[in-house]
Simulated scan of single mutants.
Amino acid sequence: MASAVALAMLCFVASPARAQETTRLSLAERVSRLEQQAQNQNQGTALVNQLVALQSQLQQAQGQIEELQHQLQELKDKNKAQYVDLDARLTRLEGGAGATAANASSTPAALHDAAPGTAAAASTASAPASAATVPQPAKAAAAGTNAASAAPAPTISADEQAAYDAAFKALRAGDYVTASRGFRDFIQQHPSSALAPNAWYWLGESYYVTMNYPVAREAFQRLLTQFPQSEKAPDALLKLGYCQLELKQTDAGKATLQSVISKYPGSKAAGLAQERLRRLNAPAG
């Protein structure tokens, strides 16, 4: 009987201890769970931050792509405008040369752009249509006066003409590498030819249309230095200014364009120079 009472008392004493231990284990588990939840939340926050950072980088990349696309479109538009300008010039010059060939059988074969003396030959060849109304003495006097004042037209050999025409044909076809090589070879072989100023000019154009502005600038400058009285001088000076502007030499480019206006007033080159200066000086926006 006594032993039974002792056992009961022992169980009674042990029960609170077990209950306390159970409570401790429960609290530890709860703390562990809370810590795990906090850790999961931190990881989720880190993932969210990484996602936000990636989205920001993606937006920046998209902005850069759009800017590059815009710059590429501007370059395409500029190149197209230059090509259209060049094609228009070639078409006008080719048409003028065709009329000269039809009216003057003594003109050298197919000068696609006006060589020195070609314009004079064309006007002389077309003179008979109106000269029929001029009395014979007057015509004789006029002929004597023209013969005394007109300088002899420079001669162009068949080799010069063939080499020049081949380079110009490549230029018209858009083969600018072959054209530039052909014009350079022509200049080296015929530096004093009557076609040399034209060759320098179209050499510069072949580089300008491909946006090789430093080399184009050199070609236009050489024409102006060696042949300042050439019919190509106004256009060469204009394109020199364009090259300087493209190379970010703004002050020099503006000065060159102003020089075109002062040296060649009333010319088409002067009109283009005025228009370019107007756009350069126009307020932004």
Score class of each variant (00 low, 15 high):
residue 4 A to G: 13
residue 7 L to Q: 14
residue 8 A to T: 10
residue 9 M to C: 03
residue 18 R to Q: 11
residue 18 R to A: 15
residue 18 R to M: 14
residue 18 R to G: 11
residue 19 A to G: 07
residue 20 Q to N: 09
residue 20 Q to C: 02
residue 20 Q to I: 04
residue 20 Q to T: 09
residue 23 T to P: 00
residue 24 R to G: 01
residue 26 S to P: 00
residue 26 S to W: 05
residue 29 E to I: 10
residue 31 V to G: 01
residue 32 S to M: 06
residue 33 R to G: 10
residue 34 L to E: 15
residue 38 A to W: 10
residue 38 A to R: 15
residue 41 Q to I: 14
residue 43 Q to W: 13
residue 44 G to D: 14
residue 44 G to T: 14
residue 45 T to H: 07
residue 46 A to E: 13
residue 48 V to P: 00
residue 48 V to R: 12
residue 51 L to P: 00
residue 56 S to F: 05
residue 56 S to V: 09
residue 57 Q to D: 08
residue 57 Q to A: 12
residue 59 Q to I: 11
residue 61 A to G: 02
residue 61 A to F: 04
residue 69 Q to Y: 04
residue 70 H to W: 06
residue 73 Q to K: 09
residue 73 Q to N: 11
residue 75 L to T: 10
residue 78 K to F: 09
residue 80 K to I: 03
residue 82 Q to V: 00
residue 86 L to C: 02
residue 89 R to L: 06
residue 92 R to E: 12
residue 94 E to W: 11
residue 99 A to W: 10
residue 99 A to N: 10
residue 102 A to D: 10
residue 105 S to T: 12
residue 106 S to R: 01
residue 107 T to W: 02
residue 109 A to G: 06
residue 111 L to H: 10
residue 111 L to I: 08
residue 112 H to M: 12
residue 113 D to K: 00
residue 113 D to S: 07
residue 114 A to F: 01
residue 116 P to T: 12
residue 121 A to P: 01
residue 122 A to F: 15
residue 123 S to N: 07
residue 125 A to N: 05
residue 125 A to W: 08
residue 126 S to Q: 09
residue 129 A to W: 13
residue 130 S to P: 00
residue 133 T to K: 08
residue 135 P to S: 14
residue 135 P to C: 04
residue 136 Q to E: 14
residue 136 Q to G: 00
residue 136 Q to S: 14
residue 139 K to F: 06
residue 139 K to W: 10
residue 140 A to L: 10
residue 140 A to R: 03
residue 141 A to Q: 12
residue 144 G to W: 10
residue 144 G to P: 00
residue 147 A to D: 08
residue 151 A to L: 15
residue 154 P to D: 03
residue 155 T to S: 15
residue 158 A to S: 15
residue 158 A to T: 15
residue 159 D to G: 03
residue 163 A to F: 01
residue 163 A to Q: 12
residue 170 A to P: 02
residue 170 A to E: 09
residue 171 L to N: 01
residue 172 R to C: 00
residue 173 A to D: 13
residue 174 G to E: 05
residue 176 Y to Q: 08
residue 181 R to I: 02
residue 186 F to V: 09
residue 189 Q to K: 15
residue 194 A to S: 14
residue 195 L to H: 04
residue 204 G to Y: 04
residue 205 E to R: 15
residue 206 S to P: 07
residue 211 M to T: 08
residue 211 M to V: 02
residue 212 N to V: 06
residue 212 N to M: 05
residue 214 P to A: 01
residue 220 F to R: 08
residue 221 Q to M: 07
residue 222 R to D: 11
residue 222 R to I: 08
residue 222 R to H: 12
residue 224 L to A: 02
residue 225 T to V: 03
residue 226 Q to D: 10
residue 227 F to G: 04
residue 227 F to S: 05
residue 229 Q to P: 00
residue 231 E to T: 11
residue 234 P to S: 05
residue 234 P to V: 02
residue 235 D to G: 09
residue 237 L to I: 03
residue 237 L to M: 13
residue 237 L to N: 01
residue 237 L to Q: 11
residue 240 L to W: 03
residue 240 L to M: 13
residue 240 L to A: 09
residue 245 L to M: 13
residue 245 L to T: 01
residue 249 Q to G: 05
residue 251 D to G: 06
residue 251 D to A: 15
residue 252 A to K: 11
residue 255 A to N: 07
residue 256 T to R: 05
residue 258 Q to V: 01
residue 258 Q to C: 01
residue 260 V to L: 08
residue 263 K to Q: 15
residue 267 S to A: 02
residue 274 Q to S: 15
residue 276 R to Y: 01
residue 276 R to C: 00
residue 280 L to V: 05
residue 285 G to Y: 07
residue 285 G to R: 12
